[in-house]
Design a protein around this nucleic acid. Structure first.
Lengths: 238, 238
DNA sequence: CGATAAATTGAACTCTATCAATAGGTGTGG
DNA sequence: CCACACCTATTGATAGAGTTCAATTTATCG
């Protein structure tokens, strides 16, 4: 079973048979180089994209040239389910590593949405994304630099764990520190200093695109991380 | 036609007949006092709430007692459509003024979602909310205090205009400055100072819960406001 | 091995927070 | 009608967090 199916089934709204129907829609898979855009603000595509492997991210650039990252996309995540209904992209998607991206024709999606349970499942993907966005607003709006980064690490660790990409006390996050800066709304220089402090406190380490968390409990406490908003059906504790 | 119907029809995915079916679900309307909670984080309600009149807001409090506001809800807006699918609230809804809140049984919603076009329309409400949240992340993450407030005013003005609540160069936003602070992620003292600057620059005035915008073009330029993310079908310019 | 991007550090400056005190406004009860 | 309490707004002073500029070091990759 691939990450996409695993994620959809985790919502508990569809049967494995229905999930298989969805997976059959993922025939057209293409490779995208790292640092490229999968889709850009303003595009009106006829496909919906799903990350099958690799890392991607959601972002938008300001008129004055500043960049804000809205999400990191892991295998199994939809890039742009919203265009199926809203028609045009209001932000962009870029890749962080070589990615395999599945393209589903918009018409196929709209067909699949005739099945209420499938529609509900896809909708739930959006709802969790929205809940996560709220948490990001709170993170950027109410916490100091170090805590923002710590919270981001907790969240990403948790999400990685779900798709089996964080086996031990570490996970791969192949981004430069400047991307981290564009994620939590601080300058790259200050990211660097905050990372050093987090390292010195023994809470988390970020080096070479690898996040290491010696004791996740301590980091969770420090970041005041409460995973409820991810709406996971937890089998075991993080 | 009420604000709810007007909003749903604006997405262009359902017929007036279908919208009327939805409106029929709004039988159970109750009044909520200002300053009360409509629903709280952690609740697992059996109803979905819609604002029929008055102002409400979405928010969440940190463990350490800081508050972040995620959205202002106007007449016609869903409070918590997400619980119909996700089961529990990951944030809270409070009122800013006396509100009339319609309660729709969750089962009714799930019935209505059997109609794909109705489901799409409700889904689109969520998608626009999510797009707006992205813009808030960008606003809080990348702009200075004055620009954040200016952007918020532009957005709210535009939304108010759509539901007919901003006829002239002003609109009602019945909140204290401290709520503005919790919205754009700065302290209440700094909100006060930023408002003074905006006023002195002739860009916007905020007094007694009334926002006055002498020249919306200037404010839009100042805030770099681009309304694409609201996904409005514009008849005329703002 | 050289070229280029990323990370790191220092120093000066800016924006924003916090603390504290004052002023304005509103509603209630005497 | 005034006095009081309470909430909100405003202003000053000071401290703190974060930014920017600039230079240096360390990776990374063809």
């Amino acid at each position: 079973m691939n990450a996409f199916e695993r994620k959809l089934l985790s919502f508990g709204a569809i049967t494995p048979q229905e999930a298989a129907v969805l997976t059959k829609a993922l025939r057209d898979v293409r490779t995208v180089a790292p640092g490229a855009d999968v889709i850009r603000e303003g595009d009106k595509p006829n496909d919906v994209n799903v990350v099958m492997s690799g890392f991607a991210f959601r972002y938008k650039d300001t008129l004055s040239g500043r960049r804000q990252i809205f999400a990191y996309l892991l295998p199994g995540d939809f890039c742009d389910l919203n265009v199926a209904l809203l028609g045009h992209m209001d932000h962009s998607i870029g890749t962080l590593s070589p990615c395999e991206i599945a393209h589903i024709p918009r018409a196929t999606i709209l067909d699949l949405l005739q099945h209420p349970r499938i529609a509900h499942t896809l909708w739930m993907c959006n709802l969790v994304d929205a809940a996560t966005l709220r948490e990001w607003v709170l993170n950027v709006g109410q916490r100091h630099a170090e805590h923002r980064i710590a919270h981001l690490f907790c969240e990403t660790y948790t999400r990685m764990k779900v798709v089996g990409l964080a086996p031990a006390k570490e996970f791969r996050l192949p981004i430069p520190q400047s991307a981290l800066a564009n994620t939590v709304g601080i300058s790259d220089v200050h990211v660097n200093r905050s990372l050093r402090t987090l390292r010195e406190k023994g809470l988390a380490k970020f080096h070479g695109g690898l996040v290491t968390i010696p004791d996740i409990r301590s980091l969770i406490d420090y970041a005041e991380f409460e995973p409820g908003y991810l709406h996971l059906r937890l089998r075991d504790q993080p």
